[in-house]
Design a protein around this nucleic acid. Sequence first.
DNA 1: CTGTATCCTAGAAGATACTG
DNA 2: CAGTATCTTCTAGGATACAG
Lengths: 108, 108
Amino acid sequence: MEHKNLPNCPVVTTLQLISNKWKILILRDLMIGTKRFHELKSSIQGISQKVLTANLRSMEEDGLVHREVYPVVPPKVEYSLTLLGQSLEPIIQAMYIWGEKYKKNIQY
Amino acid sequence: MEHKNLPNCPVVTTLQLISNKWKILILRDLMIGTKRFHELKSSIQGISQKVLTANLRSMEEDGLVHREVYPVVPPKVEYSLTLLGQSLEPIIQAMYIWGEKYKKNIQY
DNA sequence: CTGTATCCTAGAAGATACTG
DNA sequence: CAGTATCTTCTAGGATACAG
């Protein structure tokens, strides 16, 4: 993501970095710990390889994700959160808590 | 939004309702209090009338927003959050706090 | 003022094939 | 394994006009 001028509203600032459901899900997964490319692809239901790659690159640019390449054959690449990425935890946490309550309260 | 089967992950559940930046911004605005259509349009930078309407309708269907129509001329319509909508406050709050910290720490 | 109704387009995402 | 490259499809969103 290119560097945009920071908007007045902090919520908008946050949205510039994570206004995308795939990024939220990537964050959710990496909160737990380091993961390889295919682990991410497996645990994120419905994401394509191309889209996963694009989002990981974007999050790398934004300083949320760290990409570690091991020079082995076959290739091994591990993704993890930077400190900045980890600092988003309260947001994911709030979404997790809300989703749980919502499920409990819904009438079938 | 049509009613989908609830996914396992609570984060995904939450995303089904607010995986859209416009909805987040609408929530942010209505957290403060009731607003009329044009007030929302003014305070949400860059949203078109059509998109605002569509998102408000969707959020109404999802039970997040209440729409109150006053039978006067010219028309007066007020939007407010339902209890369910209000319950999303911790998420918006977390995004607000994060955005503020991010702005403070960024190096120019 | 608060909307609908159309038409249109840019960009996101899917499908598939190929590679170091 | 972890991608890139292409091509196609799809949909969110913009522009504009009009209505109760």
